[in-house]
Amino acid sequence: MIEALSIWVAAGLTLAIMSFLYGDNPVYKFAEHLYVGYSAGYWLIYTWHFTIKLMVIQPIAEKQPGAVWLVIPLFFGALMLTRWFPRIAWISRWSIAFTVGIGAGLTLTGAVHGYIIPQVKATILPLWTGNGLTSFNNFVIVVGVITTLIYFFFSKPHTGVLGKTSKVGILFIMVAFGASFGYTVMARISLLIGRLDFLWSSILKLVQFF
């Protein structure tokens, strides 16, 4: 019985969201508000369990090494809550500044170490490998990277050789965007097929139930 009820609810909510295709209507608005409300409660429980309980309470209760340093984020987190009191709300800027500092520091090292160096390293490819197809592929990749970077180089006017190279770059970029677009469309279509399949199998299950 509970299974049949959950199928009814899930199928009903799926149809309620899909009703938006007809236009904005009360059934869609009902599902939308339920979605937002449920998500808010879900993320609150998620944050409590995975952040506060596992990252703060547990290390402190078990006296794990370095747990004393958790005072720092707790302090700045508490300062963030000063937003509730308009007269001292400006103190929350300290917490924002702290997170911005951490974010900037991590991004700076992460971008160089995790993206720029590996991507440049992976682009330094042999243009002749002995195999015609591999060599051609390597050539296409190297030309694609260089011309794309030249297209985004705005410090000089795109005239002459720079202009022609950037024209090739924009063609490569268009191909990449087209491929990404096609890939995204197919991913959404597969999600849609998944939902339609769910609706169809729900009907079959309910028919079997009754």
């Binding site: 974010g103 900037a104 160089v112 991507q119 990277v145």
Partner: peptide, 21 residues
């Protein structure tokens, strides 16, 4: 075909991120 321009864009974004940081 997509790898080259995507890599170029990624390098560009990363350089921008470094500058912003």
């Amino acid at each position: 075909l997509q790898l080259g321009p995507m890599r170029g864009i990624m390098i560009g974004i990363s350089l921008g991120t470094v500058a912003m940081s």
